[in-house]
Amino acid sequence: MSSDRPGSAALGSDRLRVVVAAPLSADNAELLTRLEPRIELVHRPELVHEMRWPADFSPAPGFARSPEQQAELDALIDGADALYGIPDVDPAALARAVAANPRLRWVHTMAAGGGGQVKAAGLDADQLARVAFSTSAGVHGGPLAEFAVFGVLAGAKSLPRLLQQQRAHDWSGRWLMGQISAQRVLVAGLGGIGAVVAKKLAALDVEVIGLSRRPERPEGVASIVHPDDLLEVMPTIDALVTTLPGTAATEGLLNAEVLAAARPGLTLVSVGRGTVIDEPALIEALRSGQVGFAALDVAAVEPLATDSPLWDLPNALISPHTAGLDADEDRRIAELFARNATRLLDGEELINRVDTVEFY
């Protein structure tokens, strides 16, 4: 099917001029054009910052091009049909590219939560209607799902107590440990990440409840709860995994009222966006034991402030937004881009199309 929406209508050409505005290895550049030969790839690695680690798409502090290099990159971007990445992951650079290039029809963001970067560019309604945006949601699903399972297990198996007693050389009396096969876990958000989390937890005989506005149940989800009913389900669950994006609708969703409604000792795992959790409320809930354990891969503001109490709470585990990284992420993003290029050229809807109302 085709449509007159950008990102679903064919370009009227059998070629797609793609300018690479993010780090891309030579192997993955070759992969792109092999998977979709109709891509005309403009790849000038010397104009893009080097990666410091896998999936390092943001330039290092202090990175700068010469004026000549910047002018050359801008000129290339201004002649593109599509961009592989937002230049320097900079909303201002995205705004400049969209305004300067009337032929631009598609921008792919490297992040799963790239909708926030699009929102920050402050594009007007005409620009949002002309250019389609897509994200890399789903490529991080497997690694983040493993971290989520790790967090649920760590809470059930009393990881903070084990570490504390080990440091104290304390061979205490024995105690009962939780069995996740006897637990009920709420997965908030059933998109590309949440669906994989649910599947992996269900494989361990966990009863998985999904929090979603849609009635569809991915594999492994026993039942669906609407966000309006969140307070009612909180006393019935043992753990909560949030994979939700950062939007106006999700900001502060897990607030003091919601956490107070939970069964005492709740395990909370966050692999979506940190703004979903009211951090001051979480800190108080961790201090009181209302939340027994929290495994956090994200924070409301990153990097997490050095004076945040979360660093020092014994029942909080902080991961510096690194749980989704693995050696194959860059390749999976390239494969996703190639699939979307094929869909764009064939007049089909893009995978992971950004909703330009809620920007997720």
Score class of each variant (00 low, 15 high):
207 E>T: 07
101 N>P: 04
147 F>A: 00
299 A>Y: 05
233 V>F: 08
11 L>M: 11
271 V>E: 01
56 D>G: 12
141 G>T: 06
197 V>S: 02
207 E>M: 09
53 W>K: 06
158 S>F: 12
227 P>N: 15
77 I>V: 15
232 E>N: 11
299 A>H: 07
104 L>A: 01
172 S>N: 13
91 P>M: 09
291 V>W: 02
39 I>V: 10
6 P>H: 04
262 A>I: 01
341 A>D: 00
114 G>C: 03
278 D>T: 06
145 A>H: 07
302 E>N: 06
285 A>Y: 13
74 D>E: 14
334 A>V: 07
169 H>M: 09
306 T>S: 14
22 A>P: 04
156 A>I: 00
82 A>V: 06
96 R>T: 01
235 P>G: 10
139 V>S: 01
190 L>D: 04
128 L>R: 12
149 V>K: 06
281 A>N: 04
80 A>V: 09
159 L>M: 15
340 N>Q: 14
245 P>Q: 07
53 W>G: 11
353 R>D: 11
107 V>P: 01
137 A>R: 15
321 H>W: 09
28 N>Q: 12
45 P>M: 06
18 V>F: 07
28 N>S: 11
112 A>M: 08
89 V>N: 10
253 L>S: 00
84 Y>R: 07
108 H>T: 15
336 L>K: 06
159 L>Y: 05
295 A>G: 09
213 R>V: 09
114 G>Q: 03
103 R>V: 10
240 L>F: 13
60 A>P: 15
215 P>N: 12
286 L>I: 03
4 D>T: 13
216 E>A: 13
134 S>R: 00
95 A>Y: 03
360 Y>R: 13
208 V>A: 08
30 E>A: 15
203 A>C: 14
48 V>G: 06
236 T>Q: 14
212 S>P: 01
350 L>R: 00
114 G>I: 02
80 A>R: 03
149 V>P: 01
152 V>H: 08
308 S>M: 02
71 A>C: 09
33 T>C: 12
212 S>C: 03
212 S>Y: 10
198 A>M: 02
83 L>G: 03
5 R>P: 00
262 A>N: 07
